[in-house]
């Protein structure tokens, strides 16, 4: 077990060592590839000055708002669509038209309609997260074995009980997979939109440092984003395994 854990650290450490060697010997200029230890020093300074915590909180606030909105609307609308074919026929064309559209194609419109403040940023994150959640919810409910429903009906379950005690728990692995995929997507959309137009947040921090050729700060910002993304996925996996402890296959879906 310990050996396996150690092996998993091997490749990142190796890359850092090679990188350090190349950078420190001046093979490439430091504005092109900064020295890792210097990046860490810079990052430490940025954390202590409160700069990183400040931007991180703003970014997480936006990502969380958009994600939560997508989760609530996506799951509720998904359940309604799975419940009624009339509702499905109404919403399905809209979903199929908007879903394949790149989120970034919508950014100009969103800026135009909602301004360049938080609203448009949150809505762009919402758009990115919404579809994996709603599609997984619909597929989860529709994929429930018809005979399992029959078994529940014969045991006396009425329409409402069928939803709360059979359909929802059955669909839960799929719904949670959708929610997990969307955590990574939320972070991607967040950085993109913050780079395009913002004066705060981690995406802004990175792009602002790049504009002044402060490559150490660029890497420091990327490092923070990478740690946040990694931690969120770990957290999502943990919640998934706790919520689905009954499920024999909790290794659902690849990370995005």
């Amino acid at each position: 077990m310990n050996q396996i854990k150690f092996r998993k650290f091997l490749s990142p450490i190796l890359i850092l060592l090679i990188w350090q060697t190349i950078a420190i010997n001046g093979i490439v200029p430091t504005w092109f590839l900064p020295v890792p230890t210097e990046v860490m020093k810079t990052l430490f300074g940025m954390i202590m000055s409160g700069e990183v915590p400040h931007h991180t909180l703003i970014s997480l606030g936006r990502a969380f708002s958009g994600y939560l909105l997508a989760a609530v609307v996506g799951i509720l609308l998904g359940l309604l669509i799975a419940w009624s074919t009339i509702i499905e026929d109404f919403f399905d064309p809209l979903i199929e038209l908007i879903r394949p559209l790149s989120t970034f194609a919508l950014i100009p419109i969103f800026f135009l309609w909602f301004g360049i403040g938080n609203t448009s940023k949150i809505l762009i994150i919402f758009k990115s997260c919404f579809f994996p959640i709603i599609i997984n919810t619909i597929a989860g409910i529709k994929g429930v074995d018809a005979k399992l429903i029959m078994a529940a009906q014969s045991l006396g379950a009425n329409g409402f009980q069928l939803w709360t005690r059979v359909l929802l728990p059955s669909a839960m692995p799929m719904i949670i997979t959708g929610l997990r995929i969307s955590t990574a997507i939320a972070m991607m959309a967040l950085v993109g939109v913050e780079m395009l137009s913002s004066d705060s947040g981690l995406g802004f921090l990175v792009i602002d440092a790049q504009r002044t050729f402060d490559t150490e700060r660029v890497f420091a910002g990327i490092g923070v984003l990478s740690i946040i993304g990694f931690s969120l996925d770990k957290l999502a996996r943990y919640i998934q395994s706790k919520a689905l402890s009954w499920h024999s296959e909790t290794s659902l879906g690849g990370g995005m």
């Binding site: 399992l148 078994a151 529940a152 045991l155 006396g156 379950a157 059979v166 009954w246 499920h247 024999s248």
Partner: peptide
């Protein structure tokens, strides 16, 4: 009550939870 060839148990419920499904309803 009907029993099917495919068992059709509720996988998220324990043995006890499955058996008391009907009475709990």
């Amino acid at each position: 009550s009907i029993v099917f060839q495919e068992y059709l148990l509720f996988p998220w419920r324990t043995v006890q939870g499955n058996i008391e499904f009907g009475p709990r309803l």
